[in-house]
């Protein structure tokens, strides 16, 4: 009987340790953004987001040149003039789920707040981002919607294009992470 109790306790410790140590990852997450002004709307999509989740911590890495625009000229301007992608080829976010405080993965979609640091265009900035987390049969689904203010990351837009490019860009993230 004592032997069984010890085995049960060991199994319980292993199970708890396993659920806490689980890491979920993807290299094919999607990020898109939209810039809307009265004069022009444009968007870009990127399917090469690497992301990881473990025990309330999240991390995203985005290759800037993977954003695809409809128009070639916009893509070139975005990469070379605004994001300077040969100098800063990746953007990233690293954060921790702060609300709900007792967050645990669940099959229910949960709205969360993540506090962390963006690194975009070589500029680091702390931020809080709202999103959702859901443990689905395909993996852990992460979504987020947030705004990026170009001034915060020293992304300069020429004055003659101010009316065509929004100062705050709406960003959407969608990724399904599988256990690694």
């Amino acid at each position: 009987m004592k032997k069984y109790s010890i085995l049960m306790v060991m199994a319980l410790i292993f199970a708890i340790g396993h659920s806490f140590g689980q890491t979920f990852k993807t290299s094919t997450g999607e990020i898109s953004f939209v810039s809307k002004t009265d004069f022009e709307t444009f968007e870009a999509v990127n399917n090469q987001v690497t992301a990881a989740y473990s025990n309330g911590k999240v991390q995203f890495r985005v290759p800037i040149n993977s954003f695809i625009f409809e128009k070639k000229l916009m893509q070139t301007h975005f990469q070379e003039n605004y994001m300077e992608s040969s100098k800063y080829p990746n953007g990233s976010f690293k954060g921790v789920i702060v609300t709900p405080e007792d967050f645990k993965l669940s099959s229910k979609e949960q709205t969360v707040t993540v506090k962390g640091t963006f690194n975009i265009h070589g500029v680091e900035k702390e931020a809080e981002v709202s999103g959702t987390v859901q443990n689905t049969k395909d993996g852990v689904k992460l979504t987020a919607n947030f705004g990026i203010n170009l001034n915060d990351y020293e992304i300069g837009v020429p004055s003659n294009l101010m009316t065509k490019i929004s100062q705050v860009i709406d960003v959407k993230v969608n990724a399904i992470l599988t256990e690694k």
Partner: peptide, 25 residues
């Protein structure tokens, strides 16, 4: 392809512990 660059882990505690070399188009 077009090379999008390499991304290496920024510190030892990174969850993204792999080095990724990505290409597109």
């Amino acid at each position: 392809c077009i090379c999008n660059g390499i991304a290496k882990p920024e510190d030892p505690d990174d969850l993204l512990s792999e080095t990724t070399i990505s290409f597109n188009r």
